[in-house]
Amino acid sequence: MGSVLCSIDRHGPTLVVAGEIDASNAQWVGERIGVETGVHTVDLSGVRFCSAAGVTMLFDLGQDAVGRGDVLRLLRSPQLDRMLRLNSQDAIEGFTFVADGGPVPGSAGGS
């Protein structure tokens, strides 16, 4: 079911996720990302819909990264960015928020 709504492709150290993440596939997406090793960046700029379940999935991935002593770069789509702001989340532990061109000035990633 999860792959019907969204795709996950690997390009070197970057995982590119595109499509929709909701309560039906958030766990699948999280597990697919979680099993990859050597990932530095999770690119969600192509996610046109992310529900609250997707936000929770990102928290879990961030916690896993913290457990590994890791910090992942996270690229957000406008809709995901708005979801995070509505949830008062200007940071997710284990992630550094970046724009396409690099770190976003003033972002508090990893805190």
């Binding site: 709504l5 929709e20 909701d22 309560a23 039906s24 819909f49 529900s51």
Partner: peptide, 10 residues
């Protein structure tokens, strides 16, 4: 009837 139908609702 199930979460799998959410995409259709959207």
């Amino acid at each position: 009837g199930s979460l799998g139908e959410l995409a259709g609702v959207r």
